[in-house]
Write a protein that binds this DNA or RNA. Structure first.
Lengths: 145, 145
DNA sequence: CACTTTTCCTACTATTTTAATAGGATAAAT
DNA sequence: ATTTATCCTATTAAAATAGTAGGAAAAGTG
């Protein structure tokens, strides 16, 4: 029962971009990779997913770095999660396309489904703008995580 | 981001035992295995974990089957989860003994920690007695899940 | 223009986790 | 005496995870 490292690194990346929102220009992969102590190559894949999900774009040309594609207040943690996972289903029979004939009267499925909604709701309730604000308030001056 | 099958089977097993609470006697591994379409051998391991966690005991002698060791109202879903997992930490740095020097000002850790608490709280809020009641109300007459 | 750097894109791999199976010892009931 | 249920450990096949590697394409730099 763990979130994977791509989601974690992806979120830290998105937080970095949020902190530089509206400051003009972008941040280079290299710079992000250094801040997070992760190889440029691995971050490469993470950036690719964030881009494919439409969450970030190149700031200018190709060597201009990245910036958010939407205001940080419009990007939730769940949005970032979906860039890496497709969907959130804490057990298989909750996955789209895996309907179970017993889903109407399986009390355990009901519990899991309910928990699934609670988790998703929480992830949808927090956006990058809120994280950036917390970051400044808490005085987090170190490199990310 | 999935719960594993042992926790799922374990919960179904516990629900079966709850449905027969106070009816005298116990249920045999074999019977549970048949109801859940899982091999007796695999269920063996699941039963062993539930026993080791002190959640179930032999009803009488060795061939008398199993029963709950506490009233179903005193056993939460989180208790059953712990029989298989040790602890609930949705990311590594939340695990006991994995303290991070930045834990006071890492805003992402704060988010994960908060979500972790929400998940655990929900699992602690539901007990087997509640599941059994739901089961009867919903009219779940089929074999489990 | 030659060179370097950054991005882009795909394949591969090593490790760990997961979901089981298998084998057999022990104990109890028939 | 035999069967059957429990108990206990080891093994395994498959999937997921975390990360490396290789190199093409594009863009900026001297």
């Amino acid at each position: 029962m763990k979130f994977n490292s791509k989601t974690r690194y992806g979120l830290r990346t998105m937080l970095e971009l949020s902190l530089r929102e509206n400051m003009g220009g972008g941040i280079l992969q290299k710079e992000i990779a250094e801040n997070q102590d992760v190889s440029v190559k691995y971050l490469d894949q993470i950036i690719a997913s964030l881009k494919a999900a439409g969450l970030i774009v190149n700031a200018g040309g190709k060597k201009s770095g990245y910036r958010l594609n939407r205001p940080s207040g419009d990007i939730t943690i769940y949005d970032v999660y979906l860039a890496f996972e497709g969907d959130l289903s804490i057990i298989d029979c909750l996955s789209p396309g895996k309907e179970c004939p017993r889903e109407q009267n399986c009390v355990l499925r009901m519990f899991w489904s309910n928990l699934n909604i609670i988790i998703r709701s929480r992830m949808e309730a927090v956006n990058l703008s809120m994280l950036a604000e917390d970051y400044r308030r808490v005085g987090d001056t170190l490199k990310l995580e």
